[in-house]
Design a protein around this nucleic acid. Structure first.
Lengths: 187, 187
DNA sequence: ATATTGATCGACTAATCACTCGACAATAAT
DNA sequence: ATTATTGTCGAGTGATTAGTCGATCAATAT
């Protein structure tokens, strides 16, 4: 990806988060990215395509950050702890991107088959969950229910942490928060 | 509220949920509401104002539905159960409205001091939580953290139930889901 | 009866915006 | 050296749209 290409995505993210998709003219994105109007459309065939590309990039980054290093861990509980921690860390350190994901999720662009980009994380999580259930560590529940609760927990944690950022730096608080989550899904 | 006024709000909700705020021209709202363009602006001084009014109406309805009858119950646990159930029931039965709330929450209309309409429910919930903590029923945690977890749980439940609507009609599943939530916040 | 008020209409406008296009530059391929 | 390809520009355009305006109409008050 060229520097200009990246610069367009950066500008778009920042403007989308503060003004919304439709509140952000492509001309403004180009301007902020220090690129001409035409260049923007050289890289993205439409505004819609730009939004989608941005979403895909961000979700991919999120999933990689969340899954990073999971393979190196044996214990199911520690795997879950890692995913839980990393998903919150990423969202906390990349608020704009996290905000954008939610914004996109609940936006509705005409007849858009929101490609379920979350598939990868969901799949790996399901594997872990299943193994956990076999080992009688995790309660016997549908994979996707547990995954919903995982996402919900991140959602709630973020909503709280953004109001009380200081708590993020309190290991005891964070540790306890995970314990709650784990107790919730464990057998 | 006159019939036309209501009709405008209904049309707006339906169109917003399927096309987004900015994807919905005011002219289309007026058309669907079977009202002239001028009439729409007679009732709402701007599109922005219309969106805000709609949001306020919906959040108020949500809170009233969720809080309904809470005063008549003594037990803290049963109060929480009622709120938990009613908040999910309402969201499940009013998907468009629930979707709109999230859509609005993560939309960003320029320099908009998102008036924290949730205040009422949050306040009553905090009262209950506090009493629960005193009675050693609920774990000793900040009010707003528990409330975040309450909202997060609803978020997760909805995300799961919308994919698996049949589960909503299984009392055992729903009962267990509440138990999970309660175990999570109880002492 | 008359006046006042508010509801309703829909054509109109001024502005905005997504996207195009043709030109030019830089780089790569032959 | 010549051609092809790709990147870059920004002025221009056609379509869209939020919001206005002046005109009726209905209802109520005086």
């Amino acid at each position: 990806m060229t520097a200009k290409e990246q610069s367009i995505l950066d500008a778009a993210l920042s403007l989308f988060v503060s003004n919304g998709f439709h509140g952000t003219p492509t001309a403004l994105i180009a301007q902020k990215a220090e690129v001409s109007n035409g260049t923007l459309f050289h890289y993205h065939k439409s505004k819609e395509a730009l939004v989608k590309t941005l979403y895909t990039c961000i979700v991919t980054e999120y999933q990689e950050a969340t899954l990073d290093g999971e393979q190196d861990i044996e214990s199911i509980k520690e795997k879950v702890r890692l995913l839980w921690k990393q998903s919150i860390d990423w969202a906390f350190e990349n608020r704009d991107k996290y905000h954008f994901i939610l914004q996109y999720k609940y936006s509705t662009t005409k007849q858009d088959k929101k490609t379920d980009q979350v598939g990868n994380l969901k799949k790996r999580f399901a594997d872990i969950t299943e193994k956990g259930i076999q080992q009688k560590l995790i309660a016997h529940r549908p994979d996707d229910f547990i995954f919903s609760m995982f996402e919900a927990n991140q959602y709630g944690m973020m909503s709280y942490l953004l109001e009380n950022p200081v708590k993020y730096r309190m290991p005891e608080f964070m540790k306890q928060a995970f314990t709650w989550f784990w107790d919730g899904i464990s057998a």
